[in-house]
């Protein structure tokens, strides 16, 4: 796209946008490195007078932060890999293959986006209890495999790639799976990246289900863990919460996905651009 605004206007606008969006996050960061008595004042001060890492030290000492971090990293990664396998195959079938009931089946899959998870949590818990899998990594990973958005995005991508390459491979006598594996999937790498990041983020941030299904620190994930010391709703908690520790926990939990996004953002934006959501 060609340039439609002047250089000066571009920089001014860019700074304004970045500042507006970034301010709340920077405030979180700034608070996490202030001593508590600087936090509790009523003045706005972005740069702490006294820089401290005491809140980070406190949460790492008082809570099994590293264990929770590992649990989150492990389950989010495993769930993402699972989704990549399941959704790329299903998305491919929905997009490029003819079979009875395809339209109806896809509609049923999509319609599950309309059911709030608050309704499905208890039946799902009963299921995992019957399977004997509550309070295990399995309970955190397996349900992600049923995710709908990933199938939707993969399907959109496969719809947009031209069929000629597949046809050529098929003429050469390759099986459907072989065509998928060696012709289609390599093309889909950007889309897979996009689905990977979206799945990773939603699993990483998931709160209600992990809260219900985990009991022990050896399985518990970061969002559930740090909720123990987040000052949810002022006055809801009896006793004064340390705001500094709340914010330190927030920064701690936000850092890994931010780092991952910064590394993958070029690929990600490119990835979604190739999903051909324009149809």
């Amino acid at each position: 796209m060609s340039r439609t605004i002047s250089r000066a206007a571009w920089y001014v606008l860019l700074v304004v946008v970045v500042a507006l969006v970034l301010a709340p996050a920077l405030w979180m960061l700034s608070t996490s490195i202030k001593p508590e008595r600087e936090i509790i004042t009523t003045q706005i001060r972005w740069i702490p007078q006294n820089f401290t890492v005491e809140h980070f030290q406190a949460i790492v000492q008082n809570y099994p932060m590293m264990q929770w971090l590992f649990n989150s990293l492990f389950t989010a990664t495993a769930a993402t890999l699972l989704v990549l396998v399941l959704d790329s195959m299903a998305g491919y079938a929905f997009a490029r293959m003819e079979f009875r009931g395809r339209g109806l089946l896809f509609m049923i899959v999509l319609s599950m986006l309309f059911v709030p998870i608050q309704i499905t949590v208890v039946p799902l818990f009963i299921l995992f209890s019957r399977l004997g899998l509550t309070d295990t990594y399995w309970a955190l990973i397996l349900p992600v495999g049923a995710n709908v958005t990933g199938v939707f995005l993969m399907r959109q991508f496969f719809l947009s790639i031209p069929g000629e390459l597949e046809e050529a491979a098929r003429v050469d006598g390759a099986s459907a799976f072989r065509v998928f594996w060696s012709v289609v999937l390599p093309l889909a790498r950007p889309a897979l990246t996009a689905v990977a990041i979206i799945t990773f983020l939603s699993t990483w941030n998931s709160f209600f289900w992990p809260l219900i299904v985990t009991r022990s620190d050896s399985v518990r994930t970061l969002p559930v863990g740090i909720a123990q010391f987040l000052s949810l709703r002022a006055g809801m908690v009896q006793g004064q919460m340390s705001i500094g520790q709340s914010m330190a926990g927030a920064v701690f939990a936000a850092l890994p996905p931010i780092v991952i996004f910064v590394i993958l953002q070029r690929y990600f934006i490119e990835g979604i651009s190739r999903t051909g959501i324009k149809g």
């Binding site: 860019l14 946008v17 970045v18 969006v21 970034l22 709340p24 996050a25 405030w27 979180m28 983020l201 990483w204 941030n205 709160f207 970061l222 969002p223 740090i226 909720a227 987040l230 000052s231 949810l232 709340s246 914010m247 926990g249 927030a250 939990a253 936000a254 996905p257 931010i258 996004f261 910064v262 953002q265 070029r266 934006i269």
Partner: peptide
């Protein structure tokens, strides 16, 4: 523009409980 894109997307990376508290 890459900086702008990362910054604008970044809030989505933060978990809901933290967003709420913040």
């Amino acid at each position: 523009r890459a900086v702008g894109r990362v910054v604008v997307f970044m809030p989505y990376v933060i978990m809901s409980t933290v967003v709420g508290v913040l």
